[in-house]
Write a protein that binds this DNA or RNA. Structure first.
Length: 472
RNA sequence: GGCGAGGUAGCCAAGUGGUAAGGCUGGGCUCUGCAAAAGCCCCAUUCGUCGGUUCGAUUCCGACCCUCGCCUCCA
């Protein structure tokens, strides 16, 4: 039974999936490399999708790409590039980073500037204007009339009347009926350069919120099952999406809203000025691998603030090695051990395997799920040590692991690195040295091999070579 | 000021009205010529503080302290 915390109701609710789960996730604004805070949200969404799929559901997930807004226009201008060229660069980078973090691709990645999306946005705005939910102001921009949608503020539990009287908000936009009214269509101005589309209200570009509303409903229908994002998108972005969609369709926009908490770095908000601002590629340059970054982002419950540190990455690395070693040992056991090992009662061991998935059913309780994994790892080592694990049981464990890893996606890359010739030579030299019990030479060669990026593990009758973790 | 999240061992982090999962670090041991990114074992009388309810609270209630986030376009 799936159970998720719904931001809308502030409660855990049963989630009953339909035939296809319609899932919308707010994607990046492609004006720069996405940072690990952004990716925390995407990893959380990936975990959710993978778990839903592991539970046998079909997920139709849409992630938008915001490729026109103030920042993209400014960036293109600064670099003297066309907007499309500029955003193409960061779209490409975004997908590279997604691959590095092993994010499952969404079903589609609509971009705001796709003609069919611009058309959908204009159609929505038109309907809103016709129904009296929107108006064109003196500056030629079109705004959503908050006063026409009493439920506005419901998701974030924001009381707009209180906001209105707040001193913090300066009424410096005189053209809007109310300060909180937000732009649906922004009239063109000089600084927009070529970022302009024709509309019934004159040339201009879409507002941010209408993008998501139009793309979500165009691709997934009026009512979607799950809508995710970071907490900071709750207000006003998601609030605005609800207002727009529900005023157009008259139906509930999203049944379930899920928001992940912020990521912090070294206990502080990540900021370029604080020098603690990381992109995925920054970390990979420092030789952290995608799966290590993924593990850190994955291993803290999504509704808890995540404190990202180098120590955390280090811990992730060691945890992953331990998992690697366990898989390696199981595989080796299956290969080498004939089915002569004594059969023990299967049922008495590993009764907790399903608990991994049951933990995730409970609002993605990843900590409890990982605890199951590590318990199983320890227990199977014990049984292997005692030589009472059966061949069949080892196969069953490996099978289980494949199901688990279809969610976690943390196995090392399946293509082992080619061992360079010079390293192979050093290894064979070391073999001879060891046969002659020349330990000084053996140790020297071990260091030499390590300098080439390979770690040696001596076992009873062979030298095992393992690549030091690098970008993978 | 308004709204919200959180304070559990050196660090990260689950959880429950009945006496504290898991990971990392550390210590011990096994293996090893020595090693190791190997394996096993051990490591919180205690869950921010102070009261209350209770046979019993880390878990429920109240107050207080601290940290963090959002409050109009930052995931």
């Amino acid at each position: 039974m799936l159970h998720f915390y719904n931001t809308l109701t502030r409660q855990q609710e049963h989630f009953t999936p339909g035939e296809i789960i319609r899932f919308y996730t707010c994607g990046p604004t492609v004006y720069d490399y996405a940072h690990i805070g952004n990716f925390r949200a995407y990893v959380f969404e990936d975990l959710l999708q993978r778990h839903l799929e592991a539970r046998g559901n079909t997920v139709n997930r849409v992630m938008n790409l915001t490729d026109v807004d103030d920042k993209t226009i400014r960036g293109a201008r600064r670099e003297g590039m066309l907007l499309q060229e500029y955003t193409a660069r960061y779209k490409k980078a975004f997908f590279e980073d997604c691959d590095a973090l092993r994010l499952r691709p969404a079903t589609s990645y609509p971009a705001a500037t796709d003609p069919e999306n611009i058309a959908a946005m204009i159609a929505m705005i038109q309907t809103l204007v016709e129904k009296g939910h929107a108006y064109q102001a003196e500056d030629h921009s079109v705004y959503f009339r908050i006063a026409s949608f009493p439920r506005y503020g419901q998701l974030a539990h924001v009381d707009l009347d209180a906001q209105r009287s707040s001193k913090r908000i300066k009424n410096d936009e005189y053209t809007k009926e109310e300060i909180a009214d937000f732009a649906l269509w922004k009239a063109w101005n000089q600084e927009d350069d070529a970022a302009s589309w024709e509309s019934p209200w004159g040339p201009g570009r879409p507002g941010w919120h209408i993008e998501c509303s139009a793309m979500a409903t165009r691709l997934l229908g009026d009512t979607i099952d799950i809508h995710c994002g970071g907490v900071d998108n709750m207000f006003p972005h998601h609030e605005a999406e609800i207002a727009q969609c529900e005023c157009v369709s008259g139906r509930t926009f999203a049944r379930l809203w899920m928001h992940c908490a912020h990521l912090m770095v070294d206990g502080m908000k990540m900021a370029k000025s604080a020098g603690n601002f990381y992109t995925v590629r920054d970390l990979m340059k420092r030789s952290w691998s995608g799966r290590e970054i993924r593990y850190v982002l994955l291993s803290v419950h999504y509704r808890m603030p995540l404190n990202f540190t180098m120590e955390g990455l280090e811990a992730a690395r060691h945890s992953l090695y331990r998992i690697d070693e366990w898989i390696r040992r199981l595989e080796e056991f299956i290969q080498h051990a004939a089915d002569s090992a004594p059969i023990i009662k299967k049922e008495t061991c590993f009764t907790t395997l399903e608990d991994f998935f049951i933990a995730l059913d409970d609002d993605l309780n990843i900590s409890a799920a990982l605890a199951v994994l590590f318990d199983v790892i320890r227990e199977s080592h014990r049984l292997l040590d005692q030589e009472i694990l059966s061949h069949n049981e080892a196969m069953a464990l490996l099978d289980w692991w494949h199901r688990v890893d279809s969610i976690l996606a943390i196995t090392p890359d399946s293509h082992p690195k080619e061992i360079p010739k010079n390293v192979q030579q050093l290894v064979s030299l070391r073999y001879k040295a060891r046969a002659a019990k020349n330990w000084i030479e053996s140790d020297r060669l071990r260091d030499a091999i390590k300098a080439h990026g390979w770690i040696i593990k001596d076992t009873k009758n062979e030298q095992k070579l393992l690549p030091q973790e690098s970008n993978s």
